[in-house]
Amino acid sequence: YVGPCHPLYYEQSVDFSELQELKFVRGVRDFFSMEHHLETVSMGLIDTKNLNHAAYTNSDHLTVNLLLYTDVCSLGLDFMYEPYSQYDLKALPINGCEPFLQVGYVKDPARILSRQAEWILEKFQQML
């Protein structure tokens, strides 16, 4: 993701070879973060140790402001969470990066889902 102050904002895509030249903001690496699983899902194409992490934060607000007002970028999935769609942030595709993430759930047909489970699946389908 890049913001309007980033030199690549008006580009259509970026090459893997260019990633090492960029400055990144990185979130906290916890189990649920994309960064935690990046080494596994990138299939060796991205080594996060070689990226220039200019800022680390656990704040979405700071991440959005860094993307909007500086030349840092953020590595993430091509999925804009609805509350953030109001900002002038652009998902810049990485050339040669094929879709590799599959999302789903398993349900026992003999069991009825709880109201909470039905609600989660409904919200999940709306997001996708």
Rank of each mutant, 00 (worst) to 15 (best):
P99G: 01
F16H: 06
Y105V: 05
V106T: 14
S33N: 04
M34E: 12
I112L: 10
H6P: 03
G3T: 07
S74K: 15
R26F: 10
E11V: 13
L62Q: 12
L67R: 06
E39L: 13
V2K: 05
H36M: 13
R26K: 13
F79S: 12
Q12P: 05
H36L: 11
S59I: 08
D30F: 08
Q20C: 09
D60Y: 15
A117F: 02
V72W: 01
E122G: 09
V28T: 15
D60K: 15
W119S: 14
S42I: 06
S42C: 08
Y105Q: 06
H6Y: 02
E98L: 12
H61A: 15
V41F: 09
V41P: 05
D47I: 01
Q12L: 15
E122T: 15
D71Q: 13
C97S: 10
G27V: 01
T63M: 09
G27E: 05
E18G: 00
V28R: 14
V41A: 04
Y84D: 13
D71V: 03
Q126H: 12
P4M: 02
A54Y: 10
E11R: 15
V41Y: 12
L22C: 04
S13V: 00
Q125I: 12
L66E: 07
N52V: 05
L89S: 03
H53F: 14
V25N: 06
S33Y: 01
R26C: 05
V64G: 11
E11T: 10
L128Q: 13
T63D: 01
S13Y: 05
L77S: 08
L62R: 15
D108R: 07
V64F: 01
V103I: 14
K123Y: 00
E82S: 10
Y10L: 08
